[in-house]
Simulated scan of single mutants.
Amino acid sequence: MSNYSIKDLEQLSGIKAHTLRIWEQRYNLVNPKRTDTNIRYYDDEDLKRILNVAMLNSHGIKISKIASMSHTDISEEIIRLTDQSLDYNDQIQALTICMIEMDEDRFEKVLSTSIIKLGFEDTIIKVVYPFLTKIGVLWLTGAITPAQEHFISNLIRQKLIVAIDGEVGKNTGKTFMLFLPEGELHEISLLFSSYLIKKHGHKVIYLGQNTPDADLISVYNMQRPDFLFTVITTSPSPENIQDYLTMLGREFSEAKVFVSGLQSVEQQLSIPSNICSLAYSKEIKRILVQMEEQIV
Rank of each mutant, 00 (worst) to 15 (best):
T233F: 01
Q209H: 05
V219L: 11
P212T: 04
G208Q: 10
V204C: 14
T230Y: 02
P225K: 14
F229E: 07
L216K: 09
P225C: 14
K203G: 02
T211H: 08
M222Y: 08
I205H: 04
V231L: 12
A214C: 09
G201Q: 01
H202S: 07
D215N: 11
L207F: 02
N210M: 07
G201D: 02
D213G: 00
V204H: 03
T211Q: 13
D226F: 04
H200P: 04
K203M: 07
M222P: 07
L228D: 10
T230N: 07
G201R: 03
Q223S: 15
Y206M: 09
T211N: 12
Y220S: 10
F227H: 05
R224M: 05
D213I: 10
N221M: 08
L207G: 10
I232L: 02
I217H: 03
L216Y: 00
F227K: 01
S218A: 15
D226N: 13
I232H: 00
I205F: 05
V231M: 11
P212G: 05
K203W: 03
P225L: 12
D213H: 02
P212D: 06
V231A: 15
T211F: 06
G201V: 06
N221Y: 04
V231S: 10
H200A: 09
K203H: 10
R224G: 03
L228P: 08
L216E: 02
D215A: 08
I217C: 06
F227A: 08
R224K: 13
Q223E: 13
N210P: 02
A214F: 06
Y220F: 14
D226G: 10
H200V: 03
Q209W: 03
Q223W: 10
Q209N: 13
T233E: 09
I205L: 14
T230M: 04
Q223P: 05
V231Y: 00
R224N: 13
N221S: 14
Q209Y: 01
F227Q: 05
Q209G: 12
N210Y: 01
V231K: 04
T211M: 10
R224V: 12
T233N: 09
D226W: 01
G208N: 07
Y220H: 12
R224Q: 11
R224S: 11
F229A: 15
N210T: 04
N221V: 06
T233C: 13
F229T: 10
L228G: 13
F227N: 01
V204Q: 11
V219G: 12
I232W: 00
H202R: 03
A214M: 06
S218N: 06
K203L: 12
V231C: 14
L207S: 13
N221T: 11
I217W: 05
D213K: 03
H202W: 00
G201T: 06
D215R: 04
P225T: 12
I205P: 01
L207A: 14
G208V: 06
G208S: 04
G201P: 02
I205V: 12
P225I: 15
L207C: 12
V219C: 11
D226L: 11
